[in-house]
């Protein structure tokens, strides 16, 4: 059964990746191209020869982008299915559709939105190659902190529910999450490597496109995975009768 869930998660991930790719191609690629034009202008102004292309731009923005988004999305879909398999029946009396939607919303918040507030996505030509190690480490640290904070907040909500009810318990959990994230983001090292002359509009649109990709991917995962599980899993795997 877990294997079936995992396969299903990966397949839904591939569908989500296809949709995200269409969005990325339409709204993301034009900004990537503006950024690469900026880079070429800077190189020309410095008198540097353009860097040799190992992979052509056509491949990078077509099949390369498609592969990247789909592999990422299938991987996230698989992880999502595993978390779902663990959480189902353990986080209260919610059915598969609602649990799937809630988990996807939590993932969008913890894996994309919160880390991006501190370390936003950057187009090509923004970023110093020398600092890739520290930037990668900080990015993944921020994701880990964000997932841990959300988990703690959910645990707090569960403890508060019996005495304070769902509404107030949820407010308490949200408050804890905001405080933890605010502290983490204050303490973690700042990174700003945007070249002074880089067009602000390109940066803004690139970041919004990146957020859009994440929204589409997680919404598809959340709604489609839950729908399929609810519809196709044998009821004996999903529910036990009240008398049992």
């Amino acid at each position: 059964m877990v294997g079936t869930l995992l396969m299903r998660g990966m397949l839904v991930g591939i569908v989500a990746g296809l949709l995200a790719f269409v969005f990325a191609k339409t709204f993301g690629e034009p900004q990537v191209n503006h950024a690469i034009d900026f880079e070429s202008r800077m190189e020309a102004a410095r008198g540097d020869a353009p860097e040799p292309e190992l992979v052509s731009r056509e491949v990078q923005s077509g099949i390369g982008l498609l592969t990247g988004v789909i592999v990422y999305s299938a991987g996230m879909g698989g992880l999502f299915a595993l978390v779902f398999a663990y959480a189902y029946g353990r986080v209260g009396n919610i059915g598969p559709r609602a649990l799937s939607a809630l988990l996807a919303a939590a993932a969008l918040l913890a894996i994309a939105i919160v880390p991006d507030l501190k370390y936003p996505p950057n187009p090509p030509s923004v970023g110093d190659p020398e600092t890739i190690g520290i930037r990668t480490a900080l990015f993944f640290t921020m994701i880990a902190i964000s997932i841990a904070s959300l988990t703690l907040s959910v645990l707090l909500v569960r403890r508060l529910i019996p005495r304070h009810g769902l509404w107030n318990a949820s407010l308490g959990g949200a408050l804890l999450f905001i405080v933890l994230i605010a502290f983490a983001q204050l303490l973690l090292k700042d990174i700003n490597e945007v070249p002074a002359a880089f067009p602000a509009v390109v940066l803004w649109r690139f970041r919004i496109a990146s957020l859009g990709i994440q929204c589409i991917m997680w919404m598809t995962l959340g709604f489609l995975f839950g729908y399929l599980v609810e519809k196709t899993m044998a009821p004996r795997w999903l529910y036990r009768p009240a008398s049992a």
Partner: peptide, 28 residues
């Protein structure tokens, strides 16, 4: 082939390059 590398060269990095940037990973 960014911060760490299992396979030698830069091909994987360059191939998924646009995806890496648009999915929000640090790059370059």
């Amino acid at each position: 082939e960014g911060a760490t590398s299992i396979i030698k060269g830069m091909y994987v990095h360059e191939y998924v390059h646009d995806g890496r940037h648009l999915l929000g990973f640090p790059c370059h």
